[in-house]
Each structure stands twice: as C-alpha cells, then as structure tokens.
Write a protein that binds this DNA or RNA. Structure first.
Lengths: 209, 209
DNA sequence: TAGATTGTTAATCGATTAACAATC
DNA sequence: TAGATTGTTAATCGATTAACAATC
C-alpha cells in the first residue's frame, strides 16, 4: 500500500467505479475478482493487484462488497465532495460541456463561463452566466474555483493557463490542441479529440488492407 | 519493421504529427531526434525507436526532414485521403462535434446526423442535415460512410453500434459512457469524458493533501 | 471443517532507455 | 576526413500475469 501508485492503475479506477455503479444499480451486493474480470475484461489478478494498492477491500472466500468497494474507489478518486468549476471559452465545445449534466451529477459544479467575445458575454447557457474574461481573476478567488475547463483556441490556451495558475488554480482540463506547460504542482488532463480520431483512422486503414 | 506495432507507439503518432506540423508552420525543415526530444518531452531514443517501427525515415549525421517525416506519419495514420462520417445523436455533444471544423480540415467529412427526436430531425446544424435514425441504414451504404461518431445516451449506444456494424461500419468513435461489444474487425475509440475528469479529481485531491 | 477467494510474492512479459556501430 | 546522428541491439525498468499461502 501507498508508495507511488502507477498512472496505469489510476486510469483504471474510473472504469471500476462505473462498473461497480452498474452492479449497484442492478442490486448486486457481492462480487469476486473473477466475476468482475468476466464483465470488465481485466484479469482477476490485475483487479486484485489494483485494489491492493489502496488496501484490502475484499474478504477471503467471499469476494468484494460492491457498495463498500464502490465507495472506497469514489473516495480514492476524490469524488466524495463537490468541486467548483468554470469553463474558459464559450465556443461550441465550451457550450456543449456547459450543457452536459453528467459532470454536475458527479459533483463538478459549473459556476460560470468566460469569454472575450461580446456576442456571448452576458448570456446564459444552461443557466450559467458567461462573464468577460477580465473578471476571471476575481471570480476564481471569490468563488473558490477548483477546476478549470480550457475550451479556448490553441493560441490562447497557454496564456489562459498561465493566468489561471497565477491565481491559484491547480487543476486544468485542457481541450485545446496544445501541450500546456505548467508547474509540477498543477495537474493537467488533456482531451485531444483529433488525436483519438487519428488513432481510429490508423486502425481503420489497417482493417481495410 | 512490420510485425505488430504496439498500441503505445500508435498513440504517440498523432502527437508527432502535431509537432511536425508546427515545425513546418515555423518553416523548420530539419530536426534531430535530440531536438524533437527537447520540445516534445519524449526521449530521443524512444523517438528513433518509434519511427523505426515503420522504416528508416532519417539520415545519419543529418537527422530527419520535417516535411518528409510529417508526410510519412500522415500516411501511416491513414490521413492522406478523406473519410465520410456521420454522427448518431444530435444532442449537445453531437451538435458540438458537428460544429467543430477541425475534423473537416483533416479530411473527416461529416455527411449527415441522425436522431429520433422530431424536434431536431429535419434541421440543419452547421450546414449538415439531421435525418431520422430509420434512414441510417440506407444512408450508410449509399454514401459510403467510413466512420460513425456515437453521441447517443448510454442506453442506446450498444443497439446503435449493432445496427451500424450489421450495415458494414468498421470504425466507431464512441462518446457514450459504455464499453461497446463489437467483433474483432471493428475498431472502437472511446471518449469517456467523465473518466478523464475523475482522473483529474484524483490528482487534485493528491495535490491538496 | 471444506471450499472459496483474497492478498501478496515470484515469474513473465513488454516497453523504455542506454549504448554504440553504421553511415551520411 | 571528422563530426553528427541515425538505426539497432542490449540492458533496464515497470507493469501484468501466475501461483499459492493465508484466511474468511
């Protein structure tokens, strides 16, 4: 337990969370690593290894309690409380994310959006105000913002990130097609959609040959 | 060269493509693995290994020709021609993707959108018609559709995928929060946004401790 | 108790890094 | 030719899988 958990393990946690949620929804209260292996496609061995990075959540001869395990993983992922979030860039993508209610349901509360375009500033999207980017600094500190979704174009992304970090932001969800340069204590999660599409293209080409 | 290229390598190709594009835009015609290492953050050794999976694109004592290398990677990724695409699900996410012109610029041409909701069917989004899902089968075959973006809710995603595959679709970009079950010759690329957000939450929680 | 299944150590596998001979 | 840098082999590192003793 403890030490440094590998990135590979952490990336699997949300998937465990999702499948355990589904089991709960179906009223299943108990599951073995073998059964979880069957439905998730990881090996039973890997599943046990993964969980044991964080402690012994199971019971020999029985398996895992679905509810308890789900809760533990939620806790590990930091999903027990709420996060305050904002979106920078009220273009198509920013607006789509604002309309996406799944994040809200999981505790990621959208407090405002920011843009520099006067045609959107002042409007509301899904009940959330679009403010001018010049008000961002004040808003972040006053409203205790935890996470920022960067939905600007690629040329503004780094400058935006710099300003956010200066004002204490430690978590950025970056949708702009650039690799942001940030200090060690800031975490960035990139969503580079076009790169996923290219990967798909690679395999499609292979399948056609 | 040849054999089976590892998934890890393939995932890096789009990033090489992006950085080489940038170098081209800046008028740089030549680069060494060492220099590329400096700007991309991969080791020079890894870069050379990666490229050599596909053949010797460099020249000893000189490095790599940026234009030639960029072209080779585009070719490997299958980005030389065009793809016909459709979107299933004209909700917020589907509409955002339809409005996202970057994909078009890279050769992924959106031919139509499909939905079952009469309030959107018949409308146009960014110049693309929203058709009724019942017309999908015909459209796919007539218009030679290569790639489908699934933007339905999670309950409809598998059924949609099944129908698509029955009608010959071999590449799916899945935005619904489920793991689609597909035959071996069908490629699926998942975008599970909420899982990325959970990962961000994990690291943010860690940074705060 | 006997059976089942975890927790955990050891073995294997694959990916990354280092080193260097080949060669432009 | 001398210097630079690739292509490629060997060494290392890390992650996955297998095995099994612990134990519920």
């Amino acid at each position: 337990m403890a030490d440094k958990i590998s990135h590979a393990v952490i990336r699997r946690l949300p998937k465990y969370h999702r499948y355990l949620q589904e089991l709960m929804d179906r009223g299943i209260t108990r599951i073995s690593s073998r059964e979880l292996s069957d439905i998730m496609g990881f090996t039973a061995s890997q599943i046990r290894q993964d969980f044991n990075n964080f402690g012994g959540f199971g019971q020999q001869g029985y398996g895992y309690n679905v509810n308890a395990l789900h809760y533990e993983i939620a806790r590990i992922l930091g999903l027990v409380g709420e996060y305050n979030t904002i979106i920078v860039g009220a273009g198509n993508l920013g607006r789509a994310l604002a309309n996406y209610s799944s994040f809200e349901h999981c505790g990621f509360k959208l407090r405002a959006m920011f843009d520099i375009d006067d045609t959107v500033v002042g409007k509301k999207i899904n009940g959330v105000k679009v403010l001018h980017a010049s008000d961002m600094k004040d808003f972040i500190t006053k409203e205790n913002i935890d996470i920022v979704y960067i939905c600007t174009n690629k040329d503004s992304a780094q400058k935006t990130a710099d300003e956010l970090i200066t004002n204490g932001i430690q978590a950025i969800w970056n949708f702009a097609p650039v690799d942001l340069i940030v200090p060690d204590d800031v975490v960035v999660e990139n969503v580079h959609l076009i790169e996923d599409l290219f990967t798909l293209s690679y395999f499609l080409k292979g399948a056609r040959k």
